[in-house]
Computed example of a mutant assay.
Amino acid sequence: MTKYLISFEKGAMDHIPEAELGEVGKAARAVCREAEDAGVFVFAGGLSYDDGDVEYAGVAVDGMVTDGPYPESKELVGGVAIVDVPTREAALQWAAKFAAACRCTQDVRKFMDDPESV
């Protein structure tokens, strides 16, 4: 099996009215439970940026730390799911389920195969 990262950019869900966010959360958790039941779920979660505390940072090769993303960062990730599936097509099917639940487009990226990685 191969692990795939399914993700969306920060702000991708900004079009959803606040009153509907609870419903979106329930739908996303339902997809996670479905993936767990199917034996392909590894991890999922949304990333926090706007809670008043700086809980994210950029760290350069020289160790310099900046609050927020490092200046070369191109995008911020809003949420992720990792699935371990036999084919790319299966990953795309799970991404479609997350896209419907989260009401936003999902990116799908394959993790490199590294037999020594845990």
Rank of each mutant, 00 (worst) to 15 (best):
S48C: 08
R33P: 00
P17A: 10
V24N: 04
Y49W: 08
D62Q: 03
A57P: 01
D51S: 05
L47R: 04
H15F: 06
H15Y: 03
G78R: 03
P71M: 03
G78W: 03
L21Y: 02
V54L: 13
P17M: 04
F41G: 11
R33Q: 14
R29N: 14
E75T: 14
E75G: 02
A81C: 11
A57Q: 09
V40S: 05
Y49C: 06
D84S: 10
D53F: 10
E34F: 01
D51F: 11
G22A: 13
D84I: 00
F41Y: 14
G79R: 01
R29A: 15
D84N: 12
V54K: 05
P71F: 03
C32H: 04
A60R: 14
P71E: 03
P17V: 09
A35I: 12
R29E: 14
S73L: 13
A44Q: 02
V77A: 03
L21V: 11
E34T: 06
I82Q: 00
Y49M: 05
A57C: 06
D51I: 05
E72M: 11
L76A: 12
R29T: 09
V61S: 07
A60F: 12
V83N: 00
P71I: 07
D67E: 15
V54M: 12
Y70I: 12
A60I: 08
G79T: 07
A60Q: 09
V24Y: 05
V59Q: 04
D50V: 00
K74G: 14
Y56T: 14
V77T: 14
V83W: 00
R33I: 12
E55K: 07
E75R: 13
T66C: 12
G45P: 09
G45S: 10
E36R: 05
A35K: 02
A81W: 07
A57V: 11
F41D: 13
T66W: 05
I16V: 15
E75S: 11
